[in-house]
Amino acid sequence: MLSQRIWLTRYLMVIGIVILHTPPYQSLTELDLSFFNFIKAFFSHAVFRTSVPMLTVISGYLLFRSKLIEQPLQLITKKARVILLPLILWNIPVVLGIFFIQHYQLTTHIFSVQLSPFDSLNWFNALTGLLSSPANYPLNFLRDLFVLSLISPLLAVLLNRGPWLGAIIVALVFYFNLDGDIILRNTMLISFYIGGLAATQRWNLTKLDPYAIPLLIIFILICSAIVIFDLENRTPLRIIAPFMVWPSMSLLMKYKNGAFLERYVGSSFLTFLAHGPLLLAFWLIYQTFLPKVPYPLFWCAAPLIITIGCAWLHTKLKRYVPTLTSIALGGR
């Protein structure tokens, strides 16, 4: 039951990330409180800003619960295969595509990376995210997750010898940004450590389930307040969100919708890896060929098409090219 809930939560968070990344990005101050803009801001600037923290907590929990943490060499080898390899593989076509577009000036769209003229450092960064977000920009999550995996043996020492002192140290590193550019999204350090606490301290992960409804209501109210009052600082929400989102997932597990989604949870990683370039392609097509189509229709349709399409594609790839699919998905 716990594993099912973890898989379902992961899948919903990935769907949330697809919605979150649907272009164009607009700050809260740019959005008025019309009905559609409120809905867009509610999900894009509040609800699904908690997706990465939730995924990071789960990753930390699973890592520190496993015996892999006691075998650093095997840990690095496995994480290189399941995180670093997909990060690089799924950046290659995006890097080549952006280079081709920029080289021949096929669009005026401004990309997050400049790859033409060729510069080896820019290309290396675009492929790996070494210094900043990679070309396939959502994969900066994998980049930071790989770094967290590398330092997890150090975090394990804190978790095993002084977990709450370790929490204070991690909080100070986060607050003063002592990690610099080692972790690009440094709130992930806190989320990862919380997952480690849950694993090493053997937290009862269903303890808050009886309070799922009030916690969900509080979560909705906080997200609504963020939109209504234009609160750009969402760091507190990112930190506390797992304690509201995780119990809320117990509600979904009780209904048929949860059972329906469980059929497709295996496609979550493919959806995450592919959604960035797919959204960009959809956006360029929309701007070029379908400018008269109402934007709300695009905003609703693009994530839906990508989610359904990736679920279908995952099934076909696993059936017809299982070995290549396994490599591309890091052994998943």
Rank of each mutant, 00 (worst) to 15 (best):
N136G: 09
S59M: 03
K78P: 04
Q105G: 07
I92T: 10
M54T: 15
L63K: 01
G60K: 04
Q74D: 14
Q102M: 10
Q71S: 13
Q71E: 15
L139W: 04
Y61I: 06
V113W: 01
W90V: 07
V113N: 06
S133M: 11
S116H: 15
V82W: 00
W123H: 06
S116Q: 05
Q114H: 14
I98F: 07
I58S: 00
K67T: 10
V95G: 02
I88E: 06
Q102T: 08
H109N: 09
M54W: 04
L84N: 01
Q114W: 04
I83L: 15
F118W: 14
P72G: 12
L145E: 09
F111L: 10
S116Y: 15
G60R: 03
F48I: 02
T128R: 04
I83E: 01
F64T: 00
P117L: 11
Q102I: 10
T50M: 11
I58R: 00
I83N: 01
F124S: 14
I76E: 02
Q114V: 14
L131P: 01
I151G: 00
Q114P: 00
L73Y: 12
F124Q: 13
V52L: 12
L106H: 11
L55N: 00
L62W: 03
F99T: 12
S51F: 04
V113E: 04
H109L: 13
L75Q: 03
V47M: 13
S149M: 12
F124L: 15
N136I: 08
L127W: 08
A80D: 02
D119V: 06
L63I: 05
L96R: 05
S132K: 12
Q105P: 00
L145K: 00
P117S: 11
P72H: 08
A126H: 05
D144M: 06
W123G: 01
L63H: 02
P86H: 06
N140Q: 11
P138T: 11
L63F: 04
K67G: 06
F118V: 14
T128V: 06
V82E: 11
L130D: 02
L73I: 14
L131C: 07
H103K: 15
P93Q: 05
L62T: 02
L63R: 01
V57D: 00
L55R: 03
I69K: 02
